[in-house]
Amino acid sequence: LTVQLGNLEWHFDNPEQALKMAEELAKRYQLKVEIDNGTLKFK
């Protein structure tokens, strides 16, 4: 699973870790998370 923020990307083997990080980033920057083809992206 990949977490993508702008041109930064983090790759996780563990989806739970990816979701946890995505939630933290979304909270911190007040963004919405969307999943696009196995990639978590922020809007």
Rank of each mutant, 00 (worst) to 15 (best):
R28N: 04
V33R: 00
K20I: 10
Q17A: 13
T2E: 03
F42V: 15
G6T: 04
T2F: 06
M21R: 04
A26Y: 05
K32Y: 11
K27A: 10
H11P: 03
E23S: 11
K20D: 06
E24I: 14
K43V: 15
M21W: 15
W10K: 02
A18G: 07
K27F: 08
A18E: 00
W10I: 09
E9P: 01
Q30C: 15
T2A: 06
Q4P: 02
G6S: 04
G6E: 04
W10H: 02
A18H: 01
R28M: 09
E34N: 06
P15R: 13
D13W: 09
L31Y: 05
Y29M: 06
T39I: 15
K41Y: 09
L1Q: 04
I35W: 14
A26F: 07
N37Y: 03
L25D: 00
N14F: 09
A26E: 05
K27G: 05
I35Q: 07
N14E: 09
N14V: 08
D13E: 11
Y29D: 02
L1I: 12
A22Y: 04
G38D: 07
D13N: 12
Y29C: 13
N7C: 11
Q4K: 13
N14Q: 07
H11E: 03
L31N: 01
M21E: 03
V33N: 00
K32S: 12
R28K: 13
V3T: 01
M21V: 09
Q4G: 03
L25G: 00
W10M: 07
T39Q: 08
Q4Y: 08
Q4C: 10
G6F: 06
E23F: 14
G6H: 07
D36W: 10
L1C: 12
L40W: 03
E9D: 05
K43A: 11
W10P: 00
L19R: 09
F12E: 01
A22H: 00
H11Q: 05
K20P: 00
D13M: 09
Q4F: 06
F12I: 03
L19W: 15
Q4V: 14
N37P: 01
E34T: 12
E23W: 12
K20M: 08
K43S: 13
F42G: 03
I35K: 07
E9V: 15
A18N: 00
I35F: 14
H11Y: 12
K32H: 10
E16Q: 12
V3K: 01
L8H: 12
A18P: 03
D36A: 10
G6Y: 05
V33Q: 02
G38W: 03
V3C: 04
A26I: 06
M21H: 11
E34R: 06
A18T: 03
Y29G: 02
G6Q: 03
K32G: 06
G6I: 04
E24W: 15
L19A: 05
D36T: 11
N7G: 12
D36C: 12
F12A: 02
N7R: 14
Q4L: 12
Y29S: 02
K41N: 05
E23H: 12
K41D: 03
Q4S: 08
W10V: 07
K27C: 13
L8D: 04
F42D: 02
T39V: 15
D13Q: 11
N7A: 11
K43Y: 15
N37E: 09
E24M: 15
V33L: 11
L5Y: 09
L8P: 00
E23R: 13
L8V: 10
F42A: 03
L1D: 02
I35D: 05
N7K: 14
E16Y: 11
L40R: 01
F12M: 03
K27V: 07
K20Y: 05
A26M: 08
I35R: 10
K20N: 07
G6K: 04
P15H: 11
Y29N: 03
E34Y: 15
M21I: 10
I35A: 06
E24L: 14
N7I: 10
Q17R: 10
E34I: 15
E16D: 12
E24T: 13
K20Q: 10
F42P: 03
E34Q: 09
L8T: 07
L25N: 00
E24Y: 15
K43N: 08
E16N: 10
H11R: 07
F12C: 15
L19N: 03
Q17H: 13
N7F: 14
N14D: 14
L40Q: 01
G38H: 08
L5R: 01
Q4H: 07
L8N: 08
E23M: 14
F12W: 05
N14G: 04
K43R: 11
A26D: 02
N7L: 11
L19V: 08
K20S: 09
V3R: 01
F12R: 00
N14P: 04
R28H: 07
Q30L: 09
F12G: 01
G38I: 04
E24N: 12
K43I: 15
F12S: 01
L25K: 00
T39F: 14
L5V: 07
L8I: 11
E23L: 14
E9K: 15
L25V: 06
K32D: 09
A22G: 04
L8E: 05
Q4T: 09
Q17S: 10
V33G: 01
L8M: 12
Q17P: 05
K43C: 15
G6N: 06
M21P: 00
V33F: 15
W10R: 02
D13C: 10
D36G: 09
F42T: 03
N37K: 09
F12N: 00
H11I: 09
G38Y: 04
L40E: 01
F42M: 12
F42C: 14
L25P: 00
V33D: 00
V3M: 05
H11D: 03
L40K: 00
D36Y: 11
L40A: 02
L31W: 06
L19G: 02
H11M: 05
N37W: 03
G6L: 06
V3D: 02
R28F: 08
L19Q: 05
N7D: 10
N14R: 08
D13F: 08
E24D: 10
A26P: 00
K43H: 11
K32V: 15
E16K: 12
E9Y: 13
I35G: 02
K20H: 08
F42Q: 03
E9G: 04
T2I: 12
N14L: 09
T39M: 12
E24S: 12
T39S: 07
F42H: 03
W10T: 01
Y29K: 01
E9L: 14
Q30F: 12
A26K: 05
D36N: 10
A26R: 05
Q30S: 10
T2P: 03
L8Q: 11
P15K: 12
E34W: 15
G38R: 07
Q17W: 10
L31P: 01
L19D: 00
K32C: 13
N37T: 04
K43E: 09
T2L: 07
G6V: 03
Q30G: 15
L5C: 14
M21A: 06
D36V: 15
Q30K: 14
L19K: 08
N14S: 10
L25M: 07
L19I: 13
L1G: 03
T39W: 11
D36M: 11
N37R: 06
Q17D: 15
E16L: 13
P15Q: 10
T39A: 05
K41L: 06
A26S: 08
L40C: 13
K20F: 05
R28I: 08
L40I: 15
V3N: 01
Q17L: 13
K20V: 08
H11N: 04
M21L: 14
L25R: 00
T39P: 00
F42L: 15
E23N: 13
Y29Q: 02
N37G: 14
N7Y: 12
P15W: 15
E9A: 11
F42S: 02
E24K: 15
L40N: 01
L1R: 06
A22F: 08
Q30V: 05
L19T: 06
K41R: 14
T39C: 13
E23Y: 14
E34D: 08
V3Y: 01
K41V: 11
H11T: 07
E24Q: 14
L25C: 10
A22K: 00
E9Q: 13
D36Q: 10
A18I: 05
T39H: 08
E9I: 14
G38M: 06
Q30D: 12
E16V: 13
K43F: 14
N14T: 12
N7W: 12
E23Q: 13
K32W: 09
M21Y: 15
E34S: 08
M21D: 02
F42R: 01
L1T: 08
V33M: 10
E9T: 14
D13H: 09
M21G: 01
Y29A: 03
F42I: 15
D13S: 12
E16A: 13
W10S: 01
L19F: 13
P15E: 09
L25F: 11
H11S: 05
I35V: 10
F12H: 01
N37F: 04
H11K: 09
P15V: 13
Y29F: 12
T39E: 06
D13I: 09
N14H: 08
Q17G: 06
W10C: 12
Q4E: 05
Q30A: 10
F12L: 03
I35E: 06
A26T: 04
D13K: 12
A18R: 00
H11W: 11
Q4W: 05
Y29H: 07
G6D: 04
K27M: 08
G6C: 14
